[in-house]
């Protein structure tokens, strides 16, 4: 049996100011799985995501990606294999043109310029934004920025896509396009979101966090339909499931 893609064992994390953000979190995510991480504000979602590419190291516990622990030598390779899409695309798109931004990752990996250019073009094509390559990122619409931010990560050919609130700030059409785009990806996906309708559409499995602990982990439809569970942890039962489960 192959290793799970992501293997997290009893991870605790305390910020320097003493805030206990994670208090013993364990889960495994297999290759190609789509998993949502939901929870109220301050539940520990963002802190957890920052452990997945080694930006934060757990104060206790173990994070393994593709069977590998984070070590000084491996961290570059793990960061390539786990692509993180940030909540605010303005934080992710920092280069003068869209093209430079998408090529940034591959060039840092030491990919030759021609190959980096090819990958950048292919990634932009993949998200349907190839026509924007010479544009400065700050002039794009929110939907375009989001798509380009995803392309910057795709250019690294990651195995895992980690997304923090991918649908925030998008208009309904932009959100719909994003969902359709994400549905075409075969990567292992981890999506932290308050947009529970999006979660229902994209992720068969959901992990509910509250107070730095996992309070539930299981099939999306069953957990999100559980009204008492949802309400107890600052969430709600999405409408899309109200109509699907009349009982």
């Amino acid at each position: 049996m192959s290793d799970p893609m992501i293997d997290i064992t009893d991870v605790c994390f305390t910020y320097p100011d003493g805030t206990e953000a994670l208090r013993g979190v364990s889960f495994r995510i297999g290759h190609g799985e789509s998993v949502a991480i939901v929870g109220a504000n301050g539940a520990g979602k963002s802190t957890l995501l920052q452990h997945l590419n080694g930006y934060l190291a757990p104060t206790r516990g173990d994070v393994r990606i593709g069977g590998q622990a984070f070590t000084r030598e491996r961290i570059a390779e793990i960061r390539r294999s786990v692509g993180v899409v940030f909540q605010d695309p303005d934080d992710q798109l920092f280069m003068p043109t869209v093209f430079d931004d998408v090529a940034f990752g591959p060039l840092n990996l030491g990919v030759p310029p021609e190959e980096a250019e090819r990958r950048a073009v292919a990634s932009l094509d993949r998200v349907g934004m190839a026509h924007l390559r010479e544009r400065p990122p700050h002039k794009l619409s929110a939907g375009e920025k989001r798509a380009v931010a995803i392309a910057t990560v795709l250019a690294l050919s990651p195995d895992v896509l980690v997304m923090d609130e991918p649908s925030s700030n998008l208009d309904p059409r932009g959100r719909r396009r994003l969902i359709e785009l994400l549905a075409t990806f075969e990567h292992t996906k981890i999506i932290a979101s308050h947009d529970l309708e999006l979660v229902v559409e994209l992720c068969p499995r959901v992990i509910v966090l509250d107070g730095g602990l996992i309070v539930a982990d299981g099939p999306t439809e069953r957990l999100l339909s559980d009204e008492p569970l949802m309400l107890a942890h600052g969430l709600e039962r999405p409408h899309i499931l109200r109509h699907r489960h009349p009982h």
């Binding site: 960061r79 993180v84 940030f86 934080d91 920092f94 940034f104 990752g105 840092n108 690294l156």
Partner: peptide, 10 residues
């Protein structure tokens, strides 16, 4: 946050 996103892309 920008630094974090830069580091995650190598």
């Amino acid at each position: 946050r920008i630094y974090r996103s830069m580091v995650s892309r190598g």
